[in-house]
């Protein structure tokens, strides 16, 4: 079981940003995407997660095996920590959220409303959601924003455990996660050439 990205080109706002991206992610591995701001890392991750169609090429991934986590954690501020996580657990049909709460060190906060959490705690809750999806491939967009050093280490541990169980992760990040075994992919060489395949619309119009 693996994830394959073949000749992928992605567009943001109708303009091609990355082209001819090829990589493969096997079970048990992590791949870290690097590149300057505005290069199209988020767009690439959204495309891989199936939220937007590719401009060209394809993403080969087993059906219903992608979990996506981005800057917004999808938390409801009037629900408690346990309610927020329990909701996602039942949406993905994985039952209990207790293990995920414990893994992200949130058990003590379980009855607190999400509105009363700090930014780092919210982030931890957002990442705990990945555990209750029960999905093998994680698409993570800057997962460590607003986490302190201890929490980053905690998350790296969770990630390592996920990989050990045969999971895989595709991560866009700038900081060192403490995962020396993860492969690195610099996306800068894949920047779409100016004269290259533009969005279908713009090609026709220029």
């Amino acid at each position: 079981m693996n994830l394959q990205v073949v000749d992928l080109a992605v567009a943001r706002g109708g303009v091609a940003v990355l082209a001819a991206v090829n990589f493969r992610l096997d079970a048990g591995r992590a791949l870290i995407l690097r590149g300057p701001n505005g290069l199209g890392k988020t767009t690439l991750l959204r495309t891989v997660a199936g939220l937007q169609p590719p401009l060209a090429g394809e993403v080969r991934v087993p059906e219903d095996q992608m979990a996506y986590a981005a800057h917004a954690d999808g938390l409801k501020s009037t629900l408690t920590v346990a309610e927020n996580l329990g909701f996602w657990a039942s949406v993905f049909g994985t039952g209990s959220a207790e293990a995920a709460l414990a893994a992200m060190n949130l058990t003590g906060l379980r009855d607190r409303r999400a509105a009363d959490l700090s930014a780092g705690q919210k982030r931890r809750l957002g990442l705990a959601r990945l555990l209750v999806t029960g999905r093998r491939f994680w698409c993570l967009d800057e997962p460590t924003v607003s986490l302190d050093t201890a929490s980053v280490a905690l998350f790296a541990g969770v990630l390592r455990a996920h990989l050990a169980e045969g999971g895989a992760a595709l991560i866009a990040t700038h900081i060192d996660l403490g995962l020396p075994e993860a492969a690195l992919l610099d996306l800068t060489p894949f920047r779409a050439p100016l004269s290259g395949p533009a969005g279908a619309f713009d090609e026709a119009f220029s």
């Binding site: 109708g14 303009v15 100016l194 533009a198 119009f205 220029s206």
Partner: peptide
């Protein structure tokens, strides 16, 4: 409309360059 669309395509290209 086509001309307006062409202009915005050119502008987008210029911004990216």
């Amino acid at each position: 409309e086509i001309r307006a669309r062409r202009i915005s395509a050119l502008l987008a290209r210029e911004r990216r360059a």
